[in-house]
Simulated assay, not measured.
Amino acid sequence: MRSQASFGRNDKGSRHGVHPALFYGMFAVLLAGNALLVTAFLLSPDIARLLSGKNEQVIEAYENRIAQLRVEVDRLHSRSYAQAGDINLQLQELAQQQEVLIEQHQLVRVLVDKAGELGIETAALPVHDVGDQALAPRTDGNPDIDATAAAVAQMMGETQFAMTSIAETATARADSIVTELTGLGIPVALPTTLDGVGGPLLPPQDEDDASAMIDDANAVMGALVRYKAARDSIDDAPVHMPITGNFRQSSGFGNRTDPFSGRRAFHSGLDFAAASGTTVFSAGKGVVSFVGTKSGYGNVVEVTHANGLVSRYAHLSGFLSEVGHAVNTGTPIAKVGSTGRSTGPHLHFEVRKADSAINPKAFLEAGKRLLALLG
């Protein structure tokens, strides 16, 4: 009994522990001394990975850092200082910069999401050398306003860098696509402005940071819209391989020794030897305009593309499409065979313009370069 009573008294005593007021006081002291230091550790590492394939996770972490900076700015406002005049002015400017940073980041997030949909990952942002003491308190114990302002300014510069990187990447890719397709004789029409732009003509006003930032964001979105139009134009051209798997090119475009007559003759396409029944795919987006037989070609499928080009697939063993069907790049349209004037199962692939055959090799090679460009 004495032992149990003693045990009960010890248990009761242990529950008193550290007094809550003392505990929270200690916690407040630790928080005040380390809030800025922790922010310094968080300030730079994630932004370097902002658009390197982990967009969503890194943006979330970046938003947490912005929220932490906002807490720090609010905390600075709540402190009392002897030199109230100059410091209050600094705090007001710092709060305004913080609000601009938040708006800027919201715009960047929209642009990052749009760029991600188009397969664009901007270059990694520079890793700044931010030491452990960057946001440490001054020797008098007060937080360093200048260091906090520098941190906000740095993050604004980083988000601006992200916007610039997106625009440069989108513009460079759009220009490369236009160059490739123009070289094939395919004109590419790109929008010059964003859709839905208008309003009354008013005299200009003095710009603030927010309006200039919105103009920058609109310019980036314009670059993304142009890139999307350029990228979509790739699918309208027959530049993709119409066959995959185990195959080889067995004959090229141009004059060759005819396999039946033994004399020189013109070959109007590329031949790809493959097993009978191998699936044939549309080389680009378009509409099936012919399904049937043609002299010398055997079974044929033709697809007419938006730019007026026609891709022809011949010597087929079977059809997987009908006239009028809308097809995309990679849509199965037929099966490899050996019908018509053929020595064995293979796909004869042609590209035609104004009813004349042109070399498909230039189209397929351009397609390979464009696929590499798009990653």
Rank of each mutant, 00 (worst) to 15 (best):
L184Q: 03
R263L: 09
V287L: 01
S276I: 08
M241Q: 14
K228R: 15
S282W: 06
S282P: 09
R263S: 13
P259L: 12
L190K: 03
T193Q: 14
A265G: 07
T278H: 05
V225N: 11
G222R: 06
V178K: 06
S268Y: 01
L190E: 05
G286M: 01
T182G: 15
A274V: 06
V288G: 03
N246L: 10
F253M: 03
T244H: 09
D258Y: 10
F281L: 15
D232V: 03
H240F: 15
K228W: 05
S282A: 15
T193Y: 07
K228G: 12
Q205G: 14
D232Y: 02
I234K: 02
A273C: 07
A210P: 05
D208G: 15
M213T: 13
L224I: 09
P187R: 00
G185S: 07
N255I: 04
A217I: 01
D208S: 08
T279R: 08
P242Y: 06
G185F: 07
L201P: 00
G262C: 03
A219T: 13
A230S: 11
A189K: 03
A212K: 13
G277R: 11
P191Y: 04
L201V: 09
Q249K: 11
S261T: 15
A219C: 02
P242L: 07
A212C: 11
D215H: 13
N246D: 14
S251G: 15
G262W: 05
L202G: 01
Y227E: 12
S233V: 02
V225S: 12
R248Y: 15
G254E: 02
T244N: 12
T257D: 10
A283R: 04
V288E: 04
V288L: 01
A189L: 07
L201M: 07
S276K: 10
G196I: 05
S250G: 10
D206I: 11
A217M: 04
V225P: 02
R263H: 12
G284T: 06
D235E: 13
K228P: 08
D236F: 00
T182I: 03
A274G: 10
T192M: 08
S268W: 00
D258L: 09
L202F: 09
A210L: 14
D208A: 05
P191T: 08
G269P: 00
R263P: 00
D271N: 14
F266A: 08
S268C: 04
A283E: 07
V220G: 06
S268A: 14
P203T: 06
G284V: 09
T192I: 10
E207Y: 05
A273H: 07
F247A: 07
K285S: 14
G245R: 08
Q205P: 01
V287K: 09
V288N: 01
G292L: 04
G196R: 08
S276Q: 15
V288W: 00
V178M: 01
D236I: 04
D195E: 13
A212Y: 10
S276P: 00
I186W: 00
F281H: 14
P242A: 10
R231W: 06
V197E: 15
F253E: 00
M241T: 05
D208E: 10
G269T: 09
F247G: 08
F266Y: 07
A274C: 11
P259I: 09
G277M: 10
